[in-house]
């Protein structure tokens, strides 16, 4: 089936989620008006998932869909940890029910906004890269040494020796040779990248996908950056 015209594949996306705290449509509408007024362009045609797990009683699902489409959102489906029967009911009404990844189900509502009945939340691939600060290491990282940039990017001004290990939850930049191991996006971050001025690594890994030396032949000994494209490691020349 190599020449099939279509192919199904799983991918992760960042979606906005609307958490409902009341089933009173009038209250929801009022708060939506206030929220959207703050940034009308930002919400235009944004795909939206509606989370219903904080609702004490059931809600008119069709009315919720109509309501949010009225505000120019693209309705995706409902989500939340709810009873099986309720999930079944939602499906029978013709709506899709979206399961969240485990990491995000425990996210609690921000306490400072408790009076607001609705709130938009993003399910990002945690943690978000643009929030990372840099951990800078000056000097060579020697065999047997291990450096971990927790919730940070790692910048090494020097080489990483064979038998050394550098790990970051964000990106790794090496201004020198990479001869040891480099593990970026250690907590699960598929956009993490590894940059080095000379690739002679024992192992590189991004978000759990790894290469041993033998997979790096194409760009061995040259300045490269390594990234993920569709969950496949890719190396590209820097210069």
């Amino acid at each position: 089936m190599a020449d099939a015209s279509i192919e199904f594949k799983g991918s992760s996306f960042t979606l906005s989620v609307l958490h409902l705290r009341t089933s009173k449509l009038a209250d929801i509408r009022a708060d939506l008006v206030t929220k959207i007024a703050q940034a009308p362009d930002f919400f235009y045609l944004v795909p939206l998932v509606v989370n219903i797990e904080q609702l004490a009683c059931s809600v008119d699902y069709q009315a919720v869909k109509t309501l949010i489409e009225e505000f120019n959102f693209t309705f995706v489906g409902f989500t939340g940890s709810v009873e099986k029967e309720q999930r079944k009911l939602i499906r029978e009404l013709g709506f899709s029910f979206v399961n969240t990844a485990k990491v995000n189900t425990s996210q609690k509502v921000d306490a400072t906004e408790e009076n607001v009945a609705t709130e938009t939340k993003k399910i990002a691939d945690t943690p978000q890269s643009h929030l990372y600060t840099d951990k800078v290491h000056r000097g060579q990282i020697r065999s047997g040494q291990q450096i971990y940039a927790k919730d940070q990017n790692l910048v090494v001004i020097g080489s990483v020796s064979a038998g050394a290990e550098v790990i970051a939850d964000g990106n790794i930049h090496i201004y020198g040779s990479l001869r040891g191991r480099a593990i970026a996006g250690a907590k699960g971050h598929h956009k993490a990248q590894i940059y080095c001025q000379n690739l002679e690594a024992e192992l590189v890994s991004i978000n759990g996908n790894y290469w041993l030396s033998e997979s790096m032949e194409q760009h061995w000994g040259v300045p490269v950056y390594i990234h993920l494209t569709d969950s496949e490691l890719t190396s590209s020349k820097l210069i």
Partner: peptide, 13 residues
């Protein structure tokens, strides 16, 4: 060379 590299790490730490 590998072992010397290790010792250099020890000297520095």
């Amino acid at each position: 060379v590998r072992d010397s590299d290790r010792i250099l790490g020890m000297l520095a730490s």
